[in-house]
């Protein structure tokens, strides 16, 4: 009797495994070829492409688990239904609870899966230089040439040219309720437009002039918190031409919902043309901007910016006051 039960169990396990395997391969292949290329956030940048692969890969791993549950459920309903003539009695009780093979298999399979996913996630984060996420002021994973470009950005001689494999530094300045952008390699001009060259490593340096915001360029797969007096650096490499949307993803006040704009990835030549013409057009205002810095202290000298809820006036600061060059009194 025991041998007969054992044979039946083996038989059922084999049936379920075969059905599960065939269905999993079919569904995974369909997902890979039909859905995979359309998984967000697309392929506009290296980080977007990396995340698309990650999402697709995780789905490919999750689908067999889902199919396994459904196949087992379907098989049980079909084969072990009590209404079915000649249905076998399900094996329950101590035999099921003390089955070492099942228990060890469960622990090993889930442990391997979790450890593998942890390793996979870490590797993906490293090889994509942070996967488009803000890495803080001292990023660990940087693309080649980023450190040099970032250091040069603070000097008046910073420059960038097309087809040079240089990293383009872009400063994202958040304020209630608009993002503005500074280009230190083009004289430090500031603009409300975000234009990027294709096939270029971009270093986004994100900061805020007031409260906490978050810079989220969805199609670029770049997302970094914008904190006052903090520089949050995120990297990506542009791959495709096109438009993308920038939104603030941190609730920042009444007009938070209007804090968005669109940006463009254009050819390197078109970018050079835009940057040079904007630098020229904005020259008068650029001369009035403070020197380029990673962070700025919100002004404490007028326009109510200096008055805080405690009713005190924050004292003047001689440095880094955004938009103010006058000396301390």
């Amino acid at each position: 009797m025991a041998n007969e039960n054992s044979t039946n169990e083996t038989h059922h396990l084999r049936n379920i495994t075969v059905i599960w395997l065939i269905l999993s391969v079919i569904v995974d292949l369909l997902f890979w070829f039909l859905v995979g290329p359309h998984v967000p956030p697309g392929t506009m940048t290296s980080s977007a492409k990396g995340n698309q692969f990650d999402f697709t890969f995780l789905c490919l791993m999750a689908l067999p688990v889902l199919i396994g549950v459904w196949v087992y459920m379907g098989y049980a309903i079909r084969i072990w239904s009590a209404k079915r003539p000649g249905a076998e009695e399900p094996m329950t009780g101590p035999n099921a609870r003390t089955n070492k093979t099942a228990q060890v298999s469960w622990i090993v399979i889930t442990s391997v899966a979790v450890l593998f996913l942890a390793g996979f996630g870490t590797v993906e984060l490293v090889i994509s230089q942070g996967s488009g996420g803000g890495e803080g002021p001292n990023p660990i994973w940087t693309p080649p040439g980023a450190t040099k470009a970032e250091a040069a950005a603070l000097t008046p001689k910073a420059s960038w040219s097309a087809n040079s494999n240089q990293v383009l530094t872009v400063q994202v300045i958040a304020q209630q309720w608009k993002f503005t952008y500074r280009y230190p390699q083009f004289g430090g001009f500031e603009t409300t437009q975000l234009v990027l060259p294709a096939n270029t490593n971009i270093a986004f340096n994100v900061t805020s002039l007031d409260v906490i915001h978050s810079f989220w360029a969805y199609q670029l797969d770049v997302k970094a918190d914008a904190n006052p007096q903090q520089n949050d650096v995120a990297f990506t490499q542009t791959k495709q031409l096109g438009s993308f949307t920038v939104r603030c993803s941190e609730l920042c006040g009444i007009w938070h919902g209007t804090m968005f704009n669109s940006g463009k990835v254009v050819s390197e030549a078109a970018f050079m043309s835009w940057a040079q013409s904007t630098e020229q057009a904005n020259a008068q205002n650029t001369a009035d901007l403070p020197p380029f810095a990673w962070t700025y202290v919100p002004d404490a000298n007028g326009a109510a910016g200096g008055y805080y809820t405690d009713g005190n006036v924050t004292p003047y600061s001689t440095v880094e006051i955004y938009g103010s060059k006058q000396s301390a009194p």
């Binding site: 500031e190 409300t192 205002n285 901007l289 007028g302 910016g305 006051i321 938009g323």
Partner: peptide, 14 residues
Amino acid sequence: SGSPLRNQEWGQVQ
């Protein structure tokens, strides 16, 4: 009355 801007970018007519 006026004062220095927090962000001089808004000193530009656009």
